[in-house]
Design a protein around this nucleic acid. Sequence first.
DNA 1: CAGAATCCATATAGATACTG
DNA 2: CAGTATCTATATGGATTCTG
Lengths: 125, 125
Amino acid sequence: MHESKTKVLSAADCPSRLLLDQIADKWSVLIIASLRDGPLRFNAIKRRIEGVTQKALTQCLRRLERNGIVERNVITTSPISVEYEISALGRSLDRPFKALYQWTLEYLPEVEKARARYDERAVAD
Amino acid sequence: MHESKTKVLSAADCPSRLLLDQIADKWSVLIIASLRDGPLRFNAIKRRIEGVTQKALTQCLRRLERNGIVERNVITTSPISVEYEISALGRSLDRPFKALYQWTLEYLPEVEKARARYDERAVAD
DNA sequence: CAGAATCCATATAGATACTG
DNA sequence: CAGTATCTATATGGATTCTG
């Protein structure tokens, strides 16, 4: 009818979101950060990231590898060792991630004030 | 002992992540985008965002409001209507969000190549 | 219209045990 | 060491119903 052009936003169709969901989640960001200074082996990453389980770490590393963000090198010693390192593509994430991080540093105080105001109002109701 | 300074990354303690988890999730990003052109009422937002349920939308809006990203104005007509609009703080997110979005536009082709390579290798195994 | 409340399916995380 | 496999607790999401 007359609702010719209401632009509908879709999370499912948006390639951008689909991609970001795979690389900007809780663990992935920490993994990428932990590899910034150089390659690390599986258990070394695990030790660096507090609270991550082996399962979660494996899943995340696989996904990051599939998306070309990290590279996986098997070193056939005995016992076997596996080294992970950031790819060039992964490094290109540094800028946008840093921009987000800077935002939180800059505005976290404001956010906390807003929270305090909101919570105070909620108690008063 | 001698493991004096292994820097351990924690998702739980990181204020940055804690905050980003609240404003960079699936629905919040779409809500913020939908409000870019001006205030909208509850059901107008709901219509714009494909697939969001009333519950999810309510929860997200509350959280965004609490964090000072959107503002909620009750208009006492009958029936009642509620208008949501982006705050100045919310608008400050435009830059970092855009940076991330630009990244996906620029590198998605590379990511897709990486995926194709990975999947091919996986099939071959 | 803008929600609150409830119920339920399912996805996800975590713990545990096992292996090349 | 670097995983895989399995089980379970819990969280999350969606559908539905109801209300000022």
